[in-house]
Design a protein around this nucleic acid. Structure first.
Lengths: 117, 117
DNA sequence: ACCAGGTACTGTGCAATGCATGGAACCTGA
DNA sequence: TCAGGTTCCATGCATTGCACAGTACCTGGT
């Protein structure tokens, strides 16, 4: 009955909390290379260690991005299966991603500074 | 009436979200070098770019750490002002910090991988 | 024709966390 | 006496990852 959803099992508490506020920008970064649809984003994220997530995370996230005007979407038929909703960056989305890429190095170095001492 | 609290002004939305789940372990990392009290932790965090926070963040966080058994506390008189509550790592706290330091590099590299492409 | 299974999208509710806000208690110095 | 600095605490809100449940489309076997 339950397809157990896609995606992999949950991670540790620390990993889960780490993703907060970062996953959003990782998605924007992936979309920088062109339009992608939901399950495709899941696969791209899951291919990188520590970024595995599930549909229950990605779809509400994509809804928020759309609501905030960071992405636009358009439907496209699939060769096999239901139609896919493709997500694409808006100018606002590009700006948000640019802001994050400016902040991230400082933040990363700050954490490194504390834990490697 | 209101001392406007200590700490610096709020940061951007992205910075604020980045801190989620990381601040906790930065505090544990600072405590690795010995017992510290609340305001002292605020100053240490604020000395690093991107880690500024406020009393409204640090005290609830410290309460959680105490509730979860990651830190122990003891009171000590201050040379000027009210007594200070010093926080110190427990074995559980050391273990949690160790777990985070093992996860963090993978996570950091994963984010780097996405945004620098 | 029917139905099981995979693909793809959507929504609701919970838990964790940063933060604003408000307040209490203690000490020093004018 | 009292203004101001120091130190601590608690409540409530917004955000966000996630589990869970549901809907809809297509393909292939019987």
């Amino acid at each position: 009955m339950e397809p157990d959803i896609a995606g992999k099992p949950a991670a540790s508490k620390a990993e889960s909390q780490l993703r907060k506020g970062v996953l959003e920008y990782c998605v924007l970064a992936i979309l920088r290379d062109g339009p992608r649809y939901g399950v495709e984003l899941l696969e791209t994220l899951g291919a990188v260690n520590g970024m595995v997530t599930s549909q229950g995370t990605i779809y509400p996230l994509l809804s928020r991005l759309r609501r905030d005007g960071l992405v636009e979407t358009h439907w496209q038929e699939s060769p096999s299966g239901p139609p896919r909703r493709y997500y694409e960056l808006t100018p606002s989305g590009h700006a948000a991603l640019k802001e994050f890429t400016a902040i991230w190095p400082h933040f990363r170095d700050a954490v490194d500074h504390f834990i490697t001492d």
